[in-house]
Nucleic acid binder design. Structure first.
Lengths: 190, 190
DNA sequence: CTTGTCTATGCAACGAGTTGCATAGAAGGA
DNA sequence: TCCTTCTATGCAACTCGTTGCATAGACAAG
């Protein structure tokens, strides 16, 4: 149930509403976690009922009112407990890799467009992360000296950048392989 | 429902039982997909009932009998259809990154052992993949010339290798950052 | 004045995935 | 003989996550 912990960390960094959390999960946090707003609202409701979060109704002007959540004592304790427990190293679920192996039983050349599309998405993400890095960490607007929280956010972002670069290079390798196979007179069927 | 497609690809590469599939998912396929045997048996049962797979009872000596599954016509058609439909670029769910950002509200130094443990797991996986690459693709025992299926399996494996190398380098970066923060007189609390 | 977009919250149904448990044949060691 | 390990299959309960749908205030464009 790591979504709860991701929410706790995000709310400790800055309290916010379910809507704001959903936007954060799309953006900066997006490079290591994703969640839909439906799921976030459900979990927020549960955590508030359990006493791990507290809500505050905030009236706004020019837009609907919101519920601002922040972390309560039990929430902080739950996070600390989780932080001290070992977790399983993550396992990948890479649908595109299934497709690539599956292409052996279909037409490898038909996969080129799909792989190119994915590569473009990863290039866009990389550009987005790099812009965020300059804005928040390495540019002239960045706070100096950074505190521990910023150092840790930065190293996580560097992980996202490294992941995107690696993925783009690998997809180039995949495209080379697909093009090489397209030059062969091998029909579908293994 | 990509597990079905991963199973179809694996069974096209070579027919096998639920037990054998579970072992494959732990090993070679493991670098892009994971599944428990319970889940595999459930999906196999459903796919067989739907006519996408066919079963054959195989008597064995020195061990219990098994059910060998292979892909039927409708299964192959379902896979082909999926291969031609675009899929969403995958999104990460990296629990360790949540922990790293959460460490700002706890003791960053306490995370060192956990990160080192993860790094060791990734080193082991890398060694395992590299050994498999020599055994199946680049060593003297490897088939030459490789067919399309082998080329595609190889490029997926190269993706796994690139992923592990990237992750190990990033975890080194994380450890450097944690050590740097440990040298500072910053208490928990942001 | 209607339509569309952005902010904001949420329910209901379903499907995917995890965890715990159960069974059973065959082999080998204490 | 009992215990453990490996092979082999599966059910039941539960939690997690996705998809579809619904509501509503504020504002801007047509």
């Amino acid at each position: 149930m790591a979504l709860e912990h991701a929410i706790l960390v995000s709310l400790l960094e800055k309290p916010g509403s379910g809507y704001e959390l959903a936007r954060r999960f799309e953006r900066s946090i997006g490079h290591f976690w994703t969640a839909s707003h439906q799921q976030i609202y459900r979990v927020l409701g549960r955590m508030e009922a359990d006493g791990r979060l507290v809500v505050r109704e905030v009236e706004q002007q020019g837009r609907p009112d919101k519920k601002e959540y922040s972390v309560a004592g039990p929430g902080r304790a739950a996070l600390a407990e989780w932080l001290h427990k070992p977790i399983e190293p993550e396992s990948l679920r890479h649908d595109l890799a299934v497709k690539i192996r599956g292409a052996a039983f279909d037409d490898p050349a038909a996969l080129v467009r799909e792989v190119e599309r994915h590569r473009q998405v990863h290039r866009d993400r990389l550009a987005h992360y790099l812009a965020g890095e300059v804005r928040d960490f390495t540019g002239p607007q960045a706070p100096a000296p950074p505190d521990a929280g910023q150092e840790l956010q930065h190293v996580v972002l560097r992980g996202g950048i490294a992941y995107e670069r690696m993925t783009i290079a690998w997809l180039d390798d995949v495209l080379d392989t697909l093009h090489r196979l397209a030059g062969r007179p091998t029909g579908p069927g293994a």
